[in-house]
């Protein structure tokens, strides 16, 4: 598809009955515009338990390949994708480091307006 992908279509050009004849195109939807609070991930305190990645409804935690202290390959958190993160705060709520309470691995900051 060309640059026109996001141009709103005329009624004649729509598939009948509102069907979306394409898989996985929720990825194109910028839920990041909904965000009023921004999760800030702190690598230094993260144990890469994947809880935030599991709970995030927008699959906004991006992964990278890494390894454990003993050298076994594993997936690690790489960054938050702010195009999709809608600021719901679930990740910060569920993070076990945050729950323990002496330090945090995800902080929720108000978005600058």
């Amino acid at each position: 598809m060309s640059d026109n992908k996001y141009k709103l279509k005329d009624w004649q050009d729509l598939p009948k009955g509102g069907v979306i004849p394409e898989g996985g195109n929720a990825a194109d939807y910028e839920t990041g515009t909904w965000r009023t609070k921004r999760p800030v991930w702190k690598e230094e305190n993260c144990i890469h338990c994947m809880t935030c990645w599991t709970f995030c409804p927008e699959e906004a935690y991006k992964l990278r390949d890494g390894e454990t202290k003993s050298g076994k390959p594993r997936k690690e958190i790489k960054e938050v994708d702010y195009y999709h993160c809608k600021g719901c705060g679930l990740c910060a709520k569920e993070c076990p480091i945050n729950k323990k309470g002496d330090k945090t691995a995800i902080d929720m900051h108000h978005e600058e307006t």
Binding site: K16, G18, I20, P21
Partner: peptide, 19 residues
Amino acid sequence: PASWGALDLADYYIEHKRA
């Protein structure tokens, strides 16, 4: 794969009704 019954707000609902 396709999706049916998606959210249809002010940007498209009226075009679907027009159809």
